[in-house]
């Protein structure tokens, strides 16, 4: 039996976010909100472990009330229950404050039934920070296993998990003690399609909501106040000065270009 928590975040589909160059503010209107793609793989991983070893999967999200949507998606994929952490006091939390709040919620879950595994996505595509997972692991003192691309197995007796981590130019096989926190990459698994009954169950499920008063929190450590980082300004990415179009038929153009590159010795002789 494994007690598992999956942290899922609702994010704007970043392909659609633009900046208004006049006002330097984000144009988010009409941008669809989605389940962070890596988190979907985290849910899938937990559900697969539940199928293999038995246990329970809790999907956990901090966000505005609309974030319920991504929790329902997780339920449709096989999570057993969902908890939404929602409070105005959480607004403006950076990664340090976010991991503080999520860790407090995991502690509360742990008090009911001890938690063996926490899953996060490798990173959230809105900020791409990859900091919340390690932050939660550090606060809970869980074994931290990031960039997990395969789960080889869990030894419930010895309380160990063996995984493979995806690093730049290598793969690492590592065994960690439970409880552990895993951040996962997309190679880990193929997502399943939610079945119709599962979708109906997910749509009807009640989602537990916890506010700041349901958790043991220091008010100075949440929201804007609890966030050491702040955004000074946002702006459109600077454009690199454009250059020279080389005219002519392919052969001519190629000859001119090559002459330029060879003359300036940018391309040296081999």
């Amino acid at each position: 039996m494994l007690q598992m928590v999956v942290c899922v975040k609702q994010v704007p589909d970043t392909a659609e976010v633009r900046i208004n160059p006049r006002t330097n503010t984000l144009v988010r209107a009409g941008v669809p909100a989605i389940l962070n793609p890596y988190d979907a793989h985290a849910v899938e991983a937990a559900v697969q472990l539940k199928e293999k070893y038995g246990g329970q999967v809790t999907a956990l999200s901090m966000g505005p009330p609309q974030a319920e949507e991504v929790l329902r998606r997780a339920l449709g994929m096989g999570a057993d229950r969902a908890i939404l952490l929602s409070d105005r006091a959480f607004a403006g939390s950076d990664t340090l404050a976010t991991s503080y709040i999520l860790a407090a919620a995991i502690r509360a879950i742990d008090r009911e039934t001890p938690v063996d595994l926490v899953f996060c996505g490798k990173q959230a595509i809105d900020g791409d920070t990859a900091q919340v997972g390690p932050g939660i692991a550090a606060r809970l003192g869980f074994t931290q296993l990031t960039y997990v691309m395969a789960i080889d197995g869990v030894d419930l007796e010895k309380r160990q998990i063996q995984v493979q981590r995806k690093l730049e130019d290598k793969r690492e096989v590592i065994r960690g003690r439970l409880p552990a926190l895993l951040t996962v990459v997309k190679d880990l698994n193929e997502l399943r399609y939610a079945s119709l009954p599962a979708l109906i169950r997910a749509a009807r499920a009640t989602i537990t909501t916890w506010s700041k008063d349901d958790l043991d929190l220091d008010p100075a450590s949440i929201g804007l106040k609890g966030s050491p980082t702040s955004v000074r300004r946002i702006f459109a990415p600077p454009a690199r000065p454009g250059g020279e179009l080389i005219p002519g038929e392919p052969r001519q153009a190629a000859a001119i270009l090559v002459a330029k590159l060879v003359q300036t010795k940018i391309i040296a002789d081999k």
Partner: peptide, 23 residues
């Protein structure tokens, strides 16, 4: 900001209770 650097920086910033800006 290698895999190792990001793995470590998140843990260290949290333990120190300070801000961290990635990438």
């Amino acid at each position: 900001a290698t895999s190792m650097g990001r793995d470590l920086s998140g843990a260290v910033a949290t333990a120190l209770g300070t801000g961290l800006t990635a990438d």
